[in-house]
Amino acid sequence: MINNDSNLPTLMYSRIVGRRSDRLTGPRQRSWAVLRLPVVIGVAFFFVFPYLWLVGSSFRPREEIFRYVNPISWRTFVPLAPTLDNFRHLFFERNFGRALANSLVIALVTVAITLFIGSMIAFALARIKFPGREVVFVLILATILIPFETIMVSVFLTIQRLGLFDTYAALFLPWVTDAFIIFLLRQHFRDIPDELQDAAIVDGCSLFRVYWNVMLPNIRPALVSAAFVKFVFSWDAFLWPLIVTRDPDLTVVQLAISRLFTDQNVLWELIFAGAFIGTVPLIILFLFLQRYYVEGVVTSGFN
């Protein structure tokens, strides 16, 4: 969407991350050199302090939860008597395991189907010349212009008429066709040299074989990017599950966390522990897959 330079996706990460500064000299630069460390630390603190509080507090016993917030000190972030009680409570009394399993299964199924049908149409759009190709592509991109929030009422009615209200299918079916993912994969299919496809066809491969055996293995990094971006998206789902499920057995993790917060009797330590469970695994995954995430976001314009 944002860039027609076909080499960009693969180069993007190394270019964003690579290249240390070409440092200019001059009075402004020298004063900046002095200021830089405090600014970097300040910025880092702004983005990190909610996590420090969240992680520290999730291991705190109930009676310690408010004690060290004010005045602020290292004790605000470090539990003095760490305990796993909050997690135990969530798993044994609040059925958090079920919510986690639901979200995990839904996210994996969503990712698998999205990548499968998305890569098929992306391959057709990128590598097969057929009449109406531009029309199909524009039709797909047009869905980006319609935010889901503006059609959620009628998507809900559609799900209901299909008899899928309050089912697992309702939680992933509307999300498996994703214009951003199709766009991302199409960009990568376009980068593959023609000779590869021509050679396979001369060898007698059908287009399906070309797609499955030749093209897909060649865009593996893009598939990882798409999978991770979509996984995060699916894991974050809140508004849609809120609308389309009633059955407690279908509760997804974000709904479970939100209910701890909107309960009549708000228990802070449980909220922290729930937020911890819902967040930390994803952050760890992100630390490993960061380069794929950056590529996926920048190439697809996913927001």
Binding site: I16, V17, V40, V43, A44, F47, V48, P50, Y51, W53, L54, V232, W235, D236, F238, Q254, I257, S258, L260, F261, W268, I271, F272, A275, G278, T279, L282, I283, F286, L287, Q290, Y293, V294, V297
Partner: peptide, 23 residues
């Protein structure tokens, strides 16, 4: 530093809302 700034983008909207709500 870039990693740190990106972490909130992979934190769910619900968790961000809830934690900031308490903050």
């Amino acid at each position: 530093l870039r990693t740190v700034i990106l972490v909130p983008t992979v934190t769910s909207m619900v968790v961000v809302s809830v934690i900031w709500g308490l903050m």
